[in-house]
Structures are given as structure tokens and as C-alpha cells.
């Protein structure tokens, strides 16, 4: 990526450089920093390949995920079935691609949706304050206390009449709390800035203020969080589907494939490890991209960068008060529940 900084003769350098810094927007800077991150670019590349593979490859395959090849029941990978077949003779490659489609689309819709909910709740709570804040924070605490796995497992299978889209909304509805808290505390520091006050005194609608002045200022955190949430949503989707509480029968996701392949993992590893491998690969790409984005958005102290790097679903560079940190610790630990 070194060619992005062109080799210029020494005498033109200062002027050229100055011009460059003047013309580069923040977005361009971030993009450039992101492109320099090798791991993140690898993540983007692989994720793009996965997307294309999941949506385009099935058209070129001899077998669809609904076909049974009666001449190859549970066979190991060979020239006709690259990933082998499962017991009913369905091509594992077609199945995996189909499952990958669903898992990808669930993650790519669910992740940003989670962040959107978090942004709206957090910004409203922080901006309005008072009883709106109290009510929203109380709901947030309630959501943290409610046994989310239990509720998801209860509700999700009953949505079978609808589509998996409901399932995505449900996953998001149980995942927004931590981010919302961060957005709230950041909004509280933003809402007394001059430009926000000016807008308010001019009589701008509060919702417009939130969308035009508050949220753009926390955009970096939101973008990073949306990426990380993609991974989180995919993980909880596959976990629920693994137990049969998520994606239901005619539909396939990597989670259901893993559950189906599990009994044969030792004798016919291809039934389990191909879907599992793709799931891990996808999660890894998302994590790398999230990491790269975070570094790209955060030019400041290396220390801040490292904290943020420490754990998924992390806070932004603006850390809360110590008490705030405790709260976020506990909430993070809660994810350990899913072990």
C-alpha cells in the first residue's frame, strides 16, 4: 500500500504535502488508514469472496441444496462433490453455500440494525435526559436482566409463520444494550456543545438535532460497533439454530448445518467441518475488519487504541467514568454465559 504516498522529488514535497492534507477529507483519511491495514484488507477480500461464493456459486454447481444424489449417500469429498455429501445425499458444497447465504445476510442486516437501535435509544436517552432517560435506562437494565437466551429460544421458533427477518429483528432486539449505554454517555458530553445549543435555540426539532448533530459525531463508534455486531449476531444465530431454536426446517443456516453434522463429526468430518470452517472464517473476517476500522478511526493515543482492541463489542476511545467501566465489564462477562 506504499504507492498511496507517491514518490515525489524532494523539492516539491512540502508544498505537495500541504495541498494533500488540505484536500483530504476525514473520510478519505480514514479510508486510507484502513487500506493500510493488511489484516483488515484480507478480511474485506475474503468476505467479498464469501459473499460472491454464497450468492453466485450455486448457479454454477451441478447440484442444488434441495437435490439428493442417490448414488452418493454420505460420501467423502471427491471430484463430483467437492465437499462430500450428507446422509440423504445432498451436496455439502451447495448446502454450505446456502447456509452461508443465510448466515451472511442475517449478520449483515442484524449487525447494523442492532447498532441502529442502540444509537437511537442511547442518543435519545442522553439528549433528552430527565424521565425519558430514566425510562430508557430502566428498560435497558431490564433487558440485561431478562434471560435473553431463554426468551429468544421461546419466541424464535414461534415466528415460523413469518420469515427469518423476524428472527433477525429479534436477535437485534436483545443485543443493543451495551452500545446504547456508550452512545448515551457520549451524547451527554455532546449535548452542551455550542453547535448543539445553537441548533436547539433556533428551534430545530430534537430528532433532527440527534440525527444531524449528535449521531454523526459518534459515527466512528457506530460504524465499528455495527461491524462487531455482525459477528455477534451471526454467533447468536448459529447458537440458537444449533439447538433448533433459530432458523427452522426448510431454511438452512450454518448453525443448523453444524447441528446436523455434529453426530458425524468424527466419522464423516466433512459434514461438520466445512460449515463450521466457513462460520469461523466469516467471524474472523468480520473481526479483522472491525479492528481495522477502529484503528482507522482512532488516530489518537496508542493506549486508547489498545483498550478498545482488547475485547469485542468494546467501547470507543471516549471511556466513561470508572463506574461506567464496571458496568460494561459485567455486561461483557454476560456474553460468557453463552459458553
Amino acid at each position: 500500500m506504499t504507492q498511496l504516498v507517491p514518490d515525489v522529488p524532494a523539492d516539491v514535497l512540502p508544498e505537495e504535502k500541504q495541498k494533500k492534507t488540505r484536500t483530504l477529507s476525514r473520510g478519505a483519511l480514514v479510508r486510507r488508514r484502513f487500506r493500510r491495514n493488511r489484516l483488515a484488507m484480507v478480511g474485506v477480500g475474503i468476505l467479498a469472496v464469501l459473499l460472491v461464493g454464497a450468492y453466485v456459486l450455486p448457479y454454477f454447481l451441478k447440484f442444488s441444496y434441495t437435490d439428493n444424489d442417490w448414488n452418493a449417500l454420505g460420501t467423502a469429498p471427491d471430484a463430483t462433490h467437492w465437499f462430500g455429501t450428507n446422509h440423504p445425499g445432498v451436496d455439502m458444497l451447495a448446502l454450505t453455500m446456502r447456509g452461508l447465504q443465510k448466515s451472511l445476510v442475517i449478520g449483515l442486516i442484524g449487525g447494523p440494525l442492532t447498532t441502529l437501535i442502540a444509537a437511537l435509544v442511547g442518543a435519545s436517552a442522553g439528549y433528552f435526559g430527565g424521565w425519558i432517560d430514566r425510562i430508557l435506562m430502566w428498560v435497558l437494565e431490564l433487558m440485561l436482566v431478562v434471560p435473553s437466551f431463554l426468551l429468544l429460544a421461546l419466541i424464535a421458533p414461534r415466528l415460523a409463520g413469518g420469515t427469518w427477518l423476524y428472527f433477525v429483528v429479534l436477535l437485534s432486539a436483545f443485543g443493543w444494550m451495551i452500545t446504547a449505554r456508550v452512545v448515551r454517555s457520549m451524547t451527554q458530553t455532546l449535548k452542551d456543545r455550542e453547535y448543539v445549543l445553537a441548533a436547539r435555540y433556533m428551534g430545530v426539532n430534537p430528532l433532527v438535532i440527534i440525527f444531524r448533530h449528535i449521531l454523526p459525531n459518534v459515527a466512528s463508534i457506530l460504524i465499528v460497533d455495527a461491524t462487531i455486531q455482525v459477528g455477534a449476531v451471526v454467533l447468536s444465530e448459529s447458537g440458537l439454530s444449533y439447538f433448533g431454536f433459530g432458523i427452522q426446517a426448510p431454511d438452512i443456516s450454518l448453525g443448523t448445518l453444524i447441528a446436523d453434522g455434529q453426530p458425524d463429526a468424527t466419522t464423516s468430518p466433512w459434514m461438520f467441518f466445512f460449515p463450521a470452517g466457513f462460520l469461523v472464517l466469516m467471524g474472523l473476517c468480520v473481526a479483522f475488519i472491525g479492528d481495522g476500522l477502529r484503528d482507522a478511526f482512532d488516530p489518537t493515543a496508542a493506549g486508547a487504541k489498545a483498550v478498545v482492541k482488547s475485547i469485542k463489542r468494546a467501547k470507543g476511545p471516549i471511556a466513561g467514568s470508572p463506574a461506567q467501566d464496571v458496568v460494561s465489564n459485567t455486561a461483557r462477562a454476560e456474553e460468557g454465559l453463552a459458553s
Partner: peptide, 22 residues
């Protein structure tokens, strides 16, 4: 650690079982 964090628990557990079987 990224690899481990991206791996769902069932995949870790079943991989261990498989290695044990092998």
C-alpha cells in the same frame, strides 16, 4: 485469540471430541 473468539463454542467442543476420537 481472534480465531478463538470467532469460533462458536459447539465448534470448539466438537473439534476437541473429534481430535480425541482420532
Amino acid at each position: 485469540s481472534y480465531l478463538l473468539l470467532a469460533t462458536p463454542t459447539p465448534v470448539i467442543a466438537i473439534s476437541l471430541e473429534t481430535v480425541d476420537q482420532w
